[in-house]
Nucleic acid binder design. Structure first.
Lengths: 224, 224
DNA sequence: GAGTTTATAGTAGTATTACTATCTTTTTTA
DNA sequence: TAAAAAAGATAGTAATACTACTATAAACTC
């Protein structure tokens, strides 16, 4: 069992998967499977088969596969926020803070051994391909009322604060930040699958390209 | 039967719905139904019931509901491109052209009587909620190979050309344009459902707000 | 230490979805 | 008017997204 874990919104699950071994297996293998199959082809039956358990057992942890996805992506944003905290807290200059946040968002995510049962690289790919599906649903208002998008909102608000410090008169701080967080993932997807929609190359430099695009976008918007 | 229609990619359908009465009913009612139910809850069975036909008949037009969605959204982008053509062709200044394109993207879309069987206002709501689902799928590469994203790419390339005219040395034209097209819809979604992620108000002014945000974003990026 | 909760896992279903196949009827057109 | 194309009717299948109920094992009380 990991020593460090995030306290995620209780409405995300029926039973906390961070507390049990089966829960850990659900988290770990759902990341592997959704990454491999895509969210549409992913089912609790396939997951149950993978972890040698049953559909019914998984349903005791998560109401349905959509909530499991929301859980995973919420976990991701809490992880991002935690890392932003670590790397920006010592920086005095808000511009440097903002650049650090952008770097964290734009960087190639790799396995973080602090959290044993989560493969962050695979989870990053899931966020790239499936993020929008968490909120683009008729049930969005209900999910939102339950606070299930707190992870994303937390990261957003954190960066908005920095943005306002840099330029208090900029009138679109919230829009700019949500745009940059989403576009960071979208542009990576495009570079893999729809290259004519992006200026990023499909090679390893793309993370640097992405960072430069985001920095340019954000700082030129904030220039007074 | 309408006099004016778009020539959409032939791989989008099995039988061209613009050629028959049943095809028109499929297009018209699928827009109404997807708007009402959301794409996940929408089924060919429900559509068949609505138009007094059968599932099997609808399957003769579209391979599956995902391709129907891609068709509808492709139609939308062709319509946007057509309107951009009309309103920009007479303008000599590329900056004015770009502003006009932004205005078309950011504006409240309303019923265009040129195309009888398409409710553009409802289709706009579908694009807002479902656009990303057209390409965020494991089958994206195959769809792309068939050229099914031509509508979106067309609009994108058109604006990219104008952007390059304004500032030939800006290195992220494709990324900037795809970002602005997608963010235009995303921000409207947020203003309805996740207001803390946007600077737009939920009232009628939001279209003006959106235009100003996009103009600010794009023109500050292009400033030399 | 026996008996009773309580937590957890497993079995077996059901309604719906996303199709496919086949056959008949209607409409179009040559 | 005959042929062909389109639409409709009917039925069936495999997979999906669940739910209800049963079984077992640990843990807690008396």
């Amino acid at each position: 069992m990991t020593t460090l874990s995030f306290k995620l919104n209780e409405h995300l699950y029926l039973r906390d998967p961070q507390h049990t071994q089966l829960g850990h297996k659900i988290i770990h293998s759902s990341i592997t499977l959704i990454d491999k199959l895509g969210f549409e082809q992913f089912t609790f039956k396939k997951l149950a088969l993978e972890i040698d358990s049953t559909e019914a057992s998984i349903y005791r942890y998560f109401e349905n596969k959509h909530r499991l996805l929301v859980y995973l992506i919420s976990w991701y944003w809490h992880w991002i926020e935690y890392r932003m905290e670590i790397f920006t807290s010592a920086l005095p200059d808000p511009k440097e803070k903002l650049k650090t946040c952008l770097r964290i968002v734009a960087e190639k995510q790799k396995y973080d051994p602090t959290f044993e049962f989560v493969d962050e690289a695979a989870l990053h790919r899931i966020v790239i391909s499936e993020l929008d599906k968490t909120y683009l649903t008729k049930g969005v208002d209900e999910l939102n009322k339950e606070g299930l998008f707190g992870g994303f909102k937390g990261v957003c608000q954190k960066i908005v604060k920095i943005v306002i410090e840099i330029n208090p008169s900029y009138p679109f701080a919230n829009s700019l930040v949500s745009t940059l967080l989403i576009t960071a993932h979208q542009q990576l997807f495009f570079s893999d699958h729809l290259p004519s929609l992006t200026s990023l190359k499909a090679d390893e430099d793309r993370y640097d390209n992405l960072y430069m695009f985001l920095e340019n976008l954000v700082f030129s918007s904030l220039k007074t």
